[in-house]
Protein backbone atom coordinates (compact mmCIF):
# COMPACT_ATOMS: atom_id res chain seq x y z
CA UNK A 1 0.00 0.00 0.00
CA UNK A 2 2.70 2.46 1.02
CA UNK A 3 4.62 1.20 -1.95
CA UNK A 4 2.10 2.68 -4.38
CA UNK A 5 2.45 6.02 -2.63
CA UNK A 6 6.18 5.99 -3.24
CA UNK A 7 5.77 4.94 -6.87
CA UNK A 8 3.62 7.96 -7.63
CA UNK A 9 5.98 10.29 -5.75
CA UNK A 10 9.02 8.93 -7.60
CA UNK A 11 7.21 9.03 -10.93
CA UNK A 12 6.18 12.65 -10.54
CA UNK A 13 9.64 13.71 -9.41
CA UNK A 14 11.18 11.88 -12.35
CA UNK A 15 8.74 13.58 -14.72
CA UNK A 16 9.58 16.96 -13.21
CA UNK A 17 13.25 16.17 -13.68
CA UNK A 18 12.70 15.27 -17.35
CA UNK A 19 10.78 18.54 -17.77
CA UNK A 20 13.05 20.85 -15.89
CA UNK A 21 11.94 23.88 -17.89
CA UNK A 22 8.46 23.67 -16.32
CA UNK A 23 9.97 23.86 -12.86
CA UNK A 24 12.19 26.76 -13.85
CA UNK A 25 9.15 28.70 -15.09
CA UNK A 26 7.59 28.75 -11.63
CA UNK A 27 10.81 29.81 -10.01
CA UNK A 28 11.53 32.55 -12.53
CA UNK A 29 7.98 33.80 -12.17
CA UNK A 30 8.54 34.20 -8.43
CA UNK A 31 11.90 35.83 -9.02
CA UNK A 32 10.59 38.31 -11.57
CA UNK A 33 7.36 39.28 -9.81
CA UNK A 34 9.16 39.93 -6.55
CA UNK A 35 11.91 41.85 -8.33
CA UNK A 36 9.45 44.14 -10.13
CA UNK A 37 8.33 45.84 -6.93
CA UNK A 38 11.67 47.41 -5.93
CA UNK A 39 11.96 48.68 -9.51
CA UNK A 40 8.48 50.16 -9.45
CA UNK A 41 8.32 51.48 -5.91
CA UNK A 42 11.83 52.88 -5.78
CA UNK A 43 14.85 52.07 -3.67
CA UNK A 44 13.72 53.61 -0.37
CA UNK A 45 14.68 51.17 2.34
CA UNK A 46 11.85 52.08 4.71
CA UNK A 47 9.14 51.58 2.05
CA UNK A 48 10.66 48.39 0.69
CA UNK A 49 11.05 46.68 4.01
CA UNK A 50 7.49 47.59 5.04
CA UNK A 51 5.96 46.10 1.87
CA UNK A 52 8.36 43.15 1.76
CA UNK A 53 6.33 40.58 3.77
CA UNK A 54 3.17 41.12 1.75
CA UNK A 55 4.88 41.30 -1.63
CA UNK A 56 6.99 38.20 -1.10
CA UNK A 57 4.05 36.21 0.16
CA UNK A 58 1.76 37.29 -2.68
CA UNK A 59 4.50 36.40 -5.17
CA UNK A 60 4.86 32.97 -3.56
CA UNK A 61 1.08 32.53 -3.68
CA UNK A 62 0.89 33.36 -7.38
CA UNK A 63 3.92 31.22 -8.23
CA UNK A 64 2.31 28.27 -6.48
CA UNK A 65 -0.92 28.90 -8.32
CA UNK A 66 0.34 29.08 -11.88
CA UNK A 67 1.75 25.59 -11.55
CA UNK A 68 -1.48 24.10 -10.17
CA UNK A 69 -2.94 23.38 -13.60
CA UNK A 70 -0.20 20.89 -14.26
CA UNK A 71 -0.99 18.91 -11.12
CA UNK A 72 -3.61 16.63 -12.67
CA UNK A 73 -4.11 17.90 -16.22
CA UNK A 74 -1.45 15.71 -17.86
CA UNK A 75 -2.62 12.62 -15.98
CA UNK A 76 -6.16 13.39 -17.06
CA UNK A 77 -5.38 13.68 -20.77
CA UNK A 78 -3.05 10.68 -21.03
CA UNK A 79 -5.27 8.36 -19.02
CA UNK A 80 -2.94 7.72 -16.08
CA UNK A 81 -5.50 9.36 -13.80
CA UNK A 82 -8.06 6.68 -14.74
CA UNK A 83 -5.50 4.05 -13.87
CA UNK A 84 -4.86 5.71 -10.50
CA UNK A 85 -8.60 5.78 -9.79
CA UNK A 86 -9.00 2.06 -10.40
CA UNK A 87 -5.74 1.02 -8.74
CA UNK A 88 -6.33 -1.13 -5.66
CA UNK A 89 -4.89 1.63 -3.46
CA UNK A 90 -6.54 4.38 -1.43
CA UNK A 91 -6.89 7.27 -3.87
CA UNK A 92 -6.36 9.92 -1.18
CA UNK A 93 -2.91 8.47 -0.51
CA UNK A 94 -1.94 8.58 -4.19
CA UNK A 95 -3.25 12.13 -4.35
CA UNK A 96 -1.17 13.06 -1.32
CA UNK A 97 1.91 11.71 -3.08
CA UNK A 98 1.15 13.90 -6.09
CA UNK A 99 0.67 16.95 -3.88
CA UNK A 100 3.93 16.26 -2.06
CA UNK A 101 5.75 15.97 -5.39
CA UNK A 102 4.16 19.24 -6.51
CA UNK A 103 5.32 20.97 -3.33
CA UNK A 104 8.85 19.57 -3.59
CA UNK A 105 9.07 20.80 -7.16
CA UNK A 106 7.21 24.13 -6.96
CA UNK A 107 7.01 25.07 -3.28
CA UNK A 108 10.37 24.15 -1.79
CA UNK A 109 12.49 26.01 -4.39
CA UNK A 110 10.49 29.17 -3.64
CA UNK A 111 11.15 28.71 0.09
CA UNK A 112 14.86 28.34 -0.58
CA UNK A 113 15.03 31.29 -2.96
CA UNK A 114 13.01 33.63 -0.72
CA UNK A 115 15.82 34.78 1.62
CA UNK A 116 17.85 35.83 -1.40
CA UNK A 117 14.98 37.95 -2.64
CA UNK A 118 14.39 39.21 0.89
CA UNK A 119 17.82 40.81 0.72
CA UNK A 120 16.59 43.02 -2.13
CA UNK A 121 14.05 44.39 0.31
CA UNK A 122 16.65 45.05 3.01
CA UNK A 123 15.04 42.60 5.41
CA UNK A 124 17.11 42.08 8.57
CA UNK A 125 18.49 38.63 9.33
CA UNK A 126 15.92 37.57 11.88
CA UNK A 127 13.07 38.64 9.60
CA UNK A 128 14.65 36.60 6.79
CA UNK A 129 14.70 33.59 9.05
CA UNK A 130 11.04 34.08 9.95
CA UNK A 131 10.24 34.51 6.25
CA UNK A 132 11.78 31.13 5.48
CA UNK A 133 9.97 29.49 8.38
CA UNK A 134 6.64 31.02 7.44
CA UNK A 135 7.00 29.89 3.81
CA UNK A 136 8.12 26.44 4.91
CA UNK A 137 5.04 26.06 7.10
CA UNK A 138 2.64 27.87 4.76
CA UNK A 139 3.45 26.71 1.22
CA UNK A 140 2.35 23.09 1.85
CA UNK A 141 -1.13 24.47 2.59
CA UNK A 142 -1.06 26.26 -0.77
CA UNK A 143 -0.32 23.01 -2.61
CA UNK A 144 -2.90 21.08 -0.57
CA UNK A 145 -5.76 23.56 -1.01
CA UNK A 146 -4.72 24.22 -4.60
CA UNK A 147 -5.06 20.51 -5.38
CA UNK A 148 -8.77 20.64 -4.54
CA UNK A 149 -9.23 23.51 -6.97
CA UNK A 150 -7.16 21.80 -9.64
CA UNK A 151 -9.21 18.61 -9.27
CA UNK A 152 -12.53 20.45 -9.40
CA UNK A 153 -11.66 22.36 -12.58
CA UNK A 154 -10.18 19.37 -14.37
CA UNK A 155 -11.29 19.16 -17.98
CA UNK A 156 -13.19 22.46 -17.76
CA UNK A 157 -12.51 25.03 -20.45
CA UNK A 158 -10.53 28.02 -19.20
CA UNK A 159 -9.62 26.12 -16.07
CA UNK A 160 -6.49 28.23 -15.55
CA UNK A 161 -8.42 31.33 -14.60
CA UNK A 162 -11.15 29.40 -12.85
CA UNK A 163 -8.71 27.71 -10.53
CA UNK A 164 -7.36 31.14 -9.55
CA UNK A 165 -10.82 32.45 -8.73
CA UNK A 166 -11.58 29.33 -6.76
CA UNK A 167 -8.38 28.98 -4.84
CA UNK A 168 -7.07 32.51 -4.20
CA UNK A 169 -9.80 33.43 -1.68
CA UNK A 170 -8.96 30.26 0.24
CA UNK A 171 -5.33 31.33 0.39
CA UNK A 172 -6.22 34.47 2.37
CA UNK A 173 -5.66 33.04 5.89
CA UNK A 174 -2.26 31.70 4.87
CA UNK A 175 -1.34 35.06 3.38
CA UNK A 176 -2.42 36.93 6.53
CA UNK A 177 -0.56 34.67 8.94
CA UNK A 178 2.48 34.31 6.67
CA UNK A 179 2.98 37.99 5.96
CA UNK A 180 1.96 38.73 9.56
CA UNK A 181 4.74 36.54 10.91
CA UNK A 182 7.40 38.42 8.97
CA UNK A 183 5.90 41.82 9.84
CA UNK A 184 5.77 40.90 13.53
CA UNK A 185 9.43 39.99 13.56
CA UNK A 186 10.28 43.25 11.76
CA UNK A 187 8.57 45.14 14.57
CA UNK A 188 10.48 43.24 17.18
CA UNK A 189 7.57 41.05 18.25
CA UNK A 190 7.46 37.30 18.43
CA UNK A 191 6.29 35.54 15.28
CA UNK A 192 5.45 32.43 17.28
CA UNK A 193 1.65 32.87 17.18
CA UNK A 194 1.55 33.41 13.42
CA UNK A 195 3.81 30.45 12.77
CA UNK A 196 1.73 28.20 15.00
CA UNK A 197 -1.41 29.19 13.12
CA UNK A 198 0.33 28.51 9.80
CA UNK A 199 1.33 25.08 11.05
CA UNK A 200 -2.25 24.48 12.18
CA UNK A 201 -3.55 25.41 8.71
CA UNK A 202 -1.06 23.00 7.16
CA UNK A 203 -2.04 20.13 9.43
CA UNK A 204 -5.74 20.69 8.92
CA UNK A 205 -5.40 20.80 5.14
CA UNK A 206 -3.05 17.82 5.24
CA UNK A 207 -5.89 15.76 6.69
CA UNK A 208 -8.79 17.16 4.70
CA UNK A 209 -7.40 18.21 1.32
CA UNK A 210 -6.37 14.75 0.00
CA UNK A 211 -9.83 13.38 0.79
CA UNK A 212 -11.59 16.34 -0.82
CA UNK A 213 -9.27 16.17 -3.84
CA UNK A 214 -9.88 12.44 -4.27
CA UNK A 215 -13.65 13.02 -4.21
CA UNK A 216 -13.33 15.89 -6.69
CA UNK A 217 -11.21 13.75 -9.04
CA UNK A 218 -13.83 11.00 -9.08
CA UNK A 219 -16.45 13.55 -10.09
CA UNK A 220 -14.24 15.17 -12.73
CA UNK A 221 -13.34 11.87 -14.38
CA UNK A 222 -17.00 10.86 -14.76
Amino acid sequence: MNDAWLIILKRDLLLAFRRRSDVATTLFFFLIVSSLFPLGVGPEVAVLSSIAPGVLWVAALLAGMISLNRLFAADFTDGSLEQMLIAPQPLALLVLAKILAHWLVCGLPVVLLAPLIGLQYALPNDALLVLVWSLLLGTPTLSLIGAIGAALTLGVRGSGLLVALLVLPLYIPVLIFGAGAVAASQHGMSAQAHLSLLAACSLLSLVLAPLATAAALRISVE
Partner: peptide, 15 residues
Protein backbone atom coordinates in the same frame (compact mmCIF):
# COMPACT_ATOMS: atom_id res chain seq x y z
CA UNK B 1 -9.06 -8.40 -9.65
CA UNK B 2 -9.47 -5.90 -12.47
CA UNK B 3 -7.30 -4.76 -15.34
CA UNK B 4 -8.75 -2.00 -17.48
CA UNK B 5 -7.18 -0.60 -20.61
CA UNK B 6 -9.30 2.21 -21.96
CA UNK B 7 -9.00 4.11 -25.18
CA UNK B 8 -6.38 6.26 -23.46
CA UNK B 9 -3.11 4.43 -23.01
CA UNK B 10 -2.22 5.80 -19.60
CA UNK B 11 1.41 6.28 -20.62
CA UNK B 12 3.71 9.17 -19.81
CA UNK B 13 5.41 10.59 -22.90
CA UNK B 14 8.52 11.57 -20.94
CA UNK B 15 9.12 8.13 -19.43
Amino acid sequence: DLTYIGHLNGLKDDL
